[in-house]
Simulated assay, not measured.
Amino acid sequence: MHFKASVEYGMRAVLYLAEKGSICSSREVADEMSIPRDYLIQLAQLLRNAGIVHARPGKNGGYSLAKDASEISMLDIFNALQNDRLRAERKEAEDASDLLQDITAACSAVEREMEEYMSSITLQNMIERIHGKESDTASGSTRSQTPA
Rank of each mutant, 00 (worst) to 15 (best):
L86M: 14
N83Q: 07
P36D: 03
T142G: 15
F78Q: 03
Y39W: 11
V53D: 08
Q45A: 12
I121N: 00
V53L: 07
A50M: 05
R48M: 09
A13H: 05
D84F: 11
P36I: 00
S108Y: 02
E128Y: 13
E28A: 13
A5S: 11
K67I: 05
E111P: 00
A13R: 05
G61E: 01
S25E: 01
V110S: 04
S64W: 02
A30D: 04
L86D: 11
M74E: 05
A30G: 04
I130W: 04
A66Y: 06
F3A: 09
L43N: 02
A44M: 14
S139E: 13
I130C: 05
A18G: 10
N49T: 07
T142Q: 08
E111S: 13
D136I: 07
G21F: 03
R48F: 05
Q101D: 00
A105F: 08
E113N: 11
I41R: 15
G21K: 06
N49W: 10
L100T: 12
Y16I: 03
P57L: 09
S141M: 06
K133Q: 10
R48P: 00
D31L: 14
L100S: 08
L100H: 07
M33I: 01
P57V: 02
S64R: 09
S120R: 09
R90N: 08
K133G: 09
S135N: 10
I77W: 02
T104M: 09
L46H: 13
I35N: 01
I41V: 11
L46V: 04
P36L: 00
M74H: 02
R85N: 10
L17Y: 03
E113R: 11
A93N: 06
E116P: 00
S6M: 06
A88S: 14
K67M: 12
S108W: 02
A138N: 07
M33N: 11
V14A: 06
A109M: 07
T104L: 09
D102F: 07
A50K: 12
G62C: 02
F78Y: 15
L15P: 01
I121V: 15
Q124E: 12
A69K: 13
L75H: 00
K59P: 10
V110E: 04
M118R: 04
I41W: 10
E116C: 08
P57F: 03
S144K: 12
E111L: 14
